[in-house]
Each structure stands twice: as structure tokens, then as C-alpha cells.
């Protein structure tokens, strides 16, 4: 098909573009935003866990006394508190959305039943309870993040 027509332009945007919500602006598709956030939070969590393992390995290198001193110094630092706050936000979103994805992807639930097309021609899965679950995830995420912020900053 493409023979004799010169160069074919590979048009696959790649992984980074796939998490860029501005590459494609699909309407009525909050699931795509959920997917993008899930990927980004997953990536951030993987990076944070690696950093966390590196930091918690410090006593082995500098000794327990020096470690306790450093931890005591870090208690009141705003950057550390902010780190905890943002980590909590990332973990809450990834966990809550992960439960939704487990229900939808592995148990095949909340995606509605096949139906005959009728106006306004909206795919059954886009009006099924997975959409409500998604909004519940966002609401719970906001509530839990605010509560965590209260504990981290005020507690």
C-alpha cells in the first residue's frame, strides 16, 4: 500500500504524548484524565519509593545516632511536611483509582450492558456506574487529602 509513495511518516506519538491531555481532546472522557493521573501518580510513587529506600538506608551508612539527629532536625521543616502532604495525595489517588480499575478491568463490573444504539448515541460503558465510581474517587480523594493535610500541618 505504501510502496512507491516515498517516505511514510510514523505517526505514533509515544508514551509521553499518551499522558499529555492536550495531544487529544476527547470530549466526555474523564476516564482519560483518570488514566493520565494514574500513570503519573504511579510513576511518582515509584520514584518516591526509590528515594525513600535510599533515605531509610542512611543509618547503615552514617550510624543510628547521626540518623536520629538528622530526623530530629527535619521535624519542623516545611519542605518535609509538604513532601508528606503531596505524597499522601499521590498515594490516595493511586489507591482509590486502583480499586475502581480492579472492579472494572478484572471483574468486568460497572461497565453497563450492551444495548441497541439510540440517540444520543452514548456508549453504554460511558453512562454506567463506573462513571459514578470515578466521580466518587475524585470526591473521596479530595476529602482524604484535605484530612491528611489537616493531620500533617495541624497535628
Amino acid at each position: 500500500m505504501s510502496e512507491g509513495t516515498g517516505k511514510v511518516l510514523p505517526n505514533r506519538p509515544g508514551w509521553l504524548a499518551s499522558v499529555n491531555p492536550w495531544v487529544l481532546r476527547v470530549v466526555n472522557n474523564p476516564e482519560r484524565l483518570a488514566f493520565v493521573l494514574h500513570r503519573l501518580t504511579g510513576l511518582l510513587m515509584a520514584l518516591i519509593i526509590m528515594a525513600h529506600i535510599f533515605v531509610t538506608g542512611t543509618p547503615a551508612r552514617v550510624g543510628w545516632e547521626a540518623w536520629a539527629e538528622e530526623i530530629a532536625k527535619a521535624q519542623g521543616i516545611t519542605v518535609v511536611t509538604l513532601y508528606f502532604f503531596f505524597f499522601a495525595g499521590i498515594a490516595w489517588y493511586h489507591g482509590l483509582n486502583g480499586i475502581r480499575l480492579l472492579l472494572v478491568e478484572f471483574f468486568g463490573t460497572c461497565i453497563g450492558k450492551p444495548e441497541k444504539p439510540k440517540p444520543p448515541y452514548l456508549a453504554p460503558s460511558l453512562k454506567a456506574c463506573q462513571r459514578k465510581l470515578l466521580y466518587t474517587v475524585y470526591i473521596l480523594w479530595a476529602i482524604l487529602w484535605i484530612l491528611t493535610g489537616y493531620i500533617v500541618f495541624m497535628g
Binding site: N28, F35, A123, S125, L126
Partner: peptide, 14 residues
């Protein structure tokens, strides 16, 4: 499950 396929399908195939 980004569901963009279902959102763009012109024939409501889902």
C-alpha cells in the same frame, strides 16, 4: 481503560 475508544466511536460500538 482510558475509554477514549468508546468516547470517539461513531457507531456506539463501546
Amino acid at each position: 481503560y482510558a475509554a477514549s475508544c468508546s468516547a470517539v466511536c461513531p457507531k456506539m460500538v463501546d
